[in-house]
Design a protein around this nucleic acid. Structure first.
Lengths: 255, 255
DNA sequence: GAGTGGTCTAGACCACGAA
DNA sequence: TCGTGGTCTAGACCACTCG
């Protein structure tokens, strides 16, 4: 990893590359949970970068909940995986989400079709518009039972989207971004509890009317236009949505 | 706010002071929603600080959702108040309405008592420790039906907490912070679907075994020690948890 | 082409924790 | 006392947007 980096013009920033490297090393238990990462100074030397770059990289890991820092002590490994078990986002769409997340979507059906009145309302669209509708089951890595029944609606202008197969291991919006150059700028998310209907309960193999977590995401571009809406329905005991917030003091009046 | 600030041993970092200043100015509509903040360079001059300090300050506003940034363009004001996303203002509440986080907690009972084995497990504590246990109903402003059945466990060291009455309009942790000088540094949140048990369904006035949203929050201090745990159980049709994420950088490989 | 924010360097001083 | 992470400076180059 030469300090006289040859990687001019490489599109990914160095601090993301470094975060990526550290991420892999933590996952591989090179730095076990509870241990300290090398100091910032050491990482600067090891990777031939400035402290700024090292700090930006570590910040990413901190945001993922994998590392905590303590002045005078060091950076301590807290977990070998990002804290959210299944969900691809928290506190910003900020990621490391370039790393495969541990779920995949098995597509059951996909077709371009006019939407009915009720669906249109949920999409803020007009009845009769033809959207790409995808239905599928979402699996956590290595699990045989699906953790969600998923329905996705893709906006008319992207409805010719081509999928790489019947198993998707990346979020769907990444395909839209790749194929159309669109960009997701914001995600709005609603979560509520529902009673499972026939379609979902059958697809998931749980009793009719058992409780489920209903999770809807709207993916919007810079202009606030809807690119895609995904609805995930999770049976109660196969999924927990986890989030972590850290406090920022903004209005503070210490002196 | 003197630009030639002498800033001696002032304990708060300059970027927080600056963020605070900008925050107040945005609130006062000196920079209206939709307008651009001064450029980083201009802010450097105006406040006599380096670009690093200005950028750290703006990052805080971005994290609060009040400002978005676009390379080549500038920093645009999006809102005059922090948008959800952080502790306590965190969830959007009651169907569809994005704002209105005004809820109050009606205390049904509170007592200091030893916790049982199962509760202890959920708290990461030991059976028999005496915690302050509070049970109540949470109401959205102006609603007569409760939106949640709430149970709160306060750590032993704060169990002498005094409450201002039977109706709490501020989050409970604020009382802990005020009376003990503790500080909440992180909140971990879990959400899942459950089937309502007898206690909750009766308290909420909904059928036994109807679906509910189970929302648990752990309030932790800087050392990761649990100050308080709150469990809110929401009937399916009285509550939607809403969140909005904005993308902070792209992983994209535009070229 | 001028100006923006994004990335990055090479320094510096500080408060605080550990030995 | 020494080393840590937290803060901060004064530069720099880049890709991008916009006129």
């Amino acid at each position: 990893m030469s300090s006289t980096s040859p990687m001019r013009g490489s599109s990914t920033p160095r601090y993301i590359q470094l975060a990526s490297t550290l991420y892999e090393e933590i996952r591989a238990s090179r730095y076990p949970v509870g241990s300290l990462l090398p100091t910032e100074h050491e990482l600067c030397e090891q990777f031939g970068v400035s402290r700024f770059t090292v700090r930006e990289a570590i910040k990413m890991l901190v945001r993922q909940g994998m590392v905590t820092r303590q002045p005078g002590v060091g950076s301590r490994v807290q977990a070998t995986v990002p804290v959210s078990q299944y969900v691809q986002t928290m506190s910003g769409i900020s990621d490391l989400s370039q790393y495969a997340f541990d779920t995949s979507l098995e597509v059951i059906s996909h077709r371009v079709q006019p939407i009915d009145a009720q669906t249109a309302k949920g999409l803020g669209a007009s009845e009769g518009e033809t959207w790409l509708c995808i239905e599928g089951l979402r699996y956590a890595q290595g699990q045989s039972l699906p953790m969600a029944h998923t329905t996705v609606f893709v906006a008319p202008r992207f409805r010719s989207l081509s999928l790489p197969g019947t198993t998707l291991s990346e979020p769907l919006y990444t395909y839209i971004e790749q194929q159309y150059g669109a960009r997701v700028a914001r995600v709005d998310q609603d979560i509520r509890a529902v009673s499972l209907g026939r379609a979902s309960s059958q697809a998931l193999g749980v009793p009719l009317r058992s409780p489920g977590l209903w999770l809807k995401r709207d993916y919007l571009d810079e202009r606030g236009e809807l690119l895609e809406q995904a609805i995930n329905i999770h049976p109660s005991n196969r999924f927990t949505y986890h989030e972590s917030f850290t406090r920022d003091y903004l209005v503070g009046d210490k002196r």
